[in-house]
Nucleic acid binder design. Structure first.
Lengths: 223, 223, 223, 223
DNA sequence: CATGAATGAGGATTCATTCAT
DNA sequence: TATGAATGAATCCTCATTCAT
């Protein structure tokens, strides 16, 4: 988020209003992400978004075309960020099971730290993925995480510490499911079951349950 | 629909208007469940619900007070149904691990068969459980499933086939998470990863992965 | 216009709000006719129309669906009126040429008296008949005037006072063109040519020119 | 477009910017004519005009002051063109009736070929000639056609082939009305009466009807 | 001359809810 | 209980025009 701003004040060889426009767009995008995450596509109000930005409602239409265009831009931005962040993951040197545990903890922590993103995915699923399906740049995003998991599985199978029949995509789904639920469904789950899911202790405990679950799942029966 | 009518006018010793009113309420509730599940609380339209109903918009206000009242009634009805259905589960005679596997498969199948309920839970989480928190009858619903799991865990621990430190609520969360994701996030996941999640084969495979994951998680290390 | 009102206060055996609703619709229609005729479809403002009616903007949407729906209703109403009015024309007893002259004068007078209708037709032509083409009830309106002209031509031909090769539709087009121009183009024509087209004298003179032109056109060369 | 550029930069002794400015003005004017003719003054969009232009929106404001200024310029340009074109008409040598027929055919053909102009006149009449009235250069444009008609009538009267009481302006109005209708009202007329007005055959037939009508109108009764 | 960005006032439309009968 | 009509406060969006560079 801050990158654009930093770059703008630094580089400055480019056309005049460009840096400003970028800042305006980024600003709108930030607020819109929060609003759409908080209230959904239908629940969010263009007026409220505009009010919270540094510019006017009119600029939302100028830069993003409308409510749907803004929502699409928010989706694109959020999905884009994961790719970027995933790239920072370095699992190279670790033994397979340790790498896997690290990946699970990373996923858990990322989702906990990015509730907005989780909620946007929920919102998009309420809309039956109607918008991401129409965004070619998001289809087959080919998240690096799948490749990482494939590498781990292959190395682990070679070393005999991971069952050879574990499917990377299926494994990713399990990890995602376990981590996602903790953020997405925490509100109803904690009310219905009267349990705490927000404290650091609860989160840590849950995270380790998930790590354990994943490791036990991939390990060969006799390992 | 017609069944309700038949039953109502047949079995009833009560004043005629009462059965009618019941039928009207049930009818509205069914349509509203579909609409709220399909479009969320903000996205659903009172006019559309009324139009699909056998009665008029006025009746929604008469019986449920308004949009929020109707939404609350829908939540109450859906959560109530789980309790009812859970009661039909008979795991008594089975050995612990078999009972657990059965419970997981039941949970998976129920969620697949009741997408509307899953989506309503998503919707409610988007609203940060604002409505279920205000419904005393839903708080501490004490779902029977927790008791079932506790029984399984205890019997399993006694028999040495389940680790003694498995927490029933934590286990329920894992099962729920794995099953829920399959319905809730199927739209985005299948688009992003270009995988099929809707075919019977895909569902069955996924279900067995989940069973496996849960069983491996609870079994003692050397079992 | 007044019919609905009259009937409503007279008949009164029907459901309660119906007469009122009719009056509301009629009122909106009247104002809308004026506004669309005065400023065109794009130029007219829903707010202004609403302000001039006895009800609110919301009612326009309730009864007519929107700006286009209202415009369509206005077109339907105006075209419908001609049919009705044409039916009052009684040319039966007159000799062909006299009947024709009468019809021309009637057309001229009707158009002069109904400038709004003329302007709506202009507006619709600016829109390339986009709306009337989509109104099945207006296509092949089968205006009675064509039948009247056909009758006149046939009788006239039989009596030898009208050329046998005059086509009724072509003749109608000529009459329409001559009358229409007088209302439709009066503003630019009178400015460009500095002539009066609004005085009663000017209108009468013009009307007789048109009658003359039409009669001379249909008469056999040697008649 | 490119021709203009070539010619401008080639033949010109003038300051280079001037030719450019001319080119820009002409380009804007052409596009604006199309847009105003297509959608009317209210319906046309400055943004759309600018987009279709080779330059930017700013230039419209620079050269024409705004939407109304541009519309005025378009009117001036179109009316100016008729005068120019009318001047090419040479009826001198022909006998009066032949000259008249020629003039009618010319008028008809010009209007068919210049639909944009016809539509602009319609648009201006929708605005009750509000703009042409305020353009001194258009008032009393003294179209040459009136003079031509006066000449024809006088010669014809002298020769006894045209009634002496035919008024040139009135005759012009009749010719205009008959020709104008064919272009202006073709959309509604062809829909309502289910007739073809666009084919070459239909146009030719209609043109000859008009010629006939005009000639019969001016000829002395016994001619 | 040229361009992208910005603006405020206006304009069409929708929504949950209530009223009259 | 039932129904069509009515309402006002939003809500999304568009337009002609101007500014900064």
């Amino acid at each position: 988020m801050d990158d654009a701003k930093t770059m703008a004040s630094a580089g400055a060889q480019r056309p005049p209003g460009e840096a400003d426009a970028d800042r305006v767009r980024t600003n709108i995008l930030e607020i819109a992400t929060e609003e759409f995450a908080a209230k959904g596509l239908t629940g969010a109000r263009i007026d409220e978004i505009a009010e919270r930005t540094l510019t006017s409602k009119r600029m939302i239409y100028y830069h993003f075309g409308g409510k749907e265009g803004l929502y699409r831009a928010v989706l694109a931005h959020c999905y884009g960020r994961i790719r970027t962040i995933e790239s920072t993951l370095d699992l190279g040197g670790r033994p397979p099971l340790e790498a896997l545990a690290h990946l699970v903890r990373f996923t858990f922590d990322y989702q906990v730290a990015n509730e907005d993103f989780i909620r946007l995915v929920m919102v998009e699923n309420i809309h039956r993925a109607e918008y991401v399906s129409q965004m070619p740049e998001l289809q087959a995003l080919n998240l690096k995480v799948i490749e990482l998991l494939r590498g781990i599985c292959e190395r682990g199978a070679a070393e005999g510490v991971i069952r050879p029949d574990v499917d990377p995509t299926d494994l990713h789904m399990s990890i995602s499911a376990l981590c996602f639920f903790n953020v997405a469904n925490r509100h109803t789950f904690s009310v219905i079951h009267e349990v705490d899911m927000m404290s650091i202790a609860a989160k840590t405990a849950r995270r380790e349950t998930i790590v354990e679950m994943v490791l036990r799942y991939v390990r060969p029966a006799a390992a």
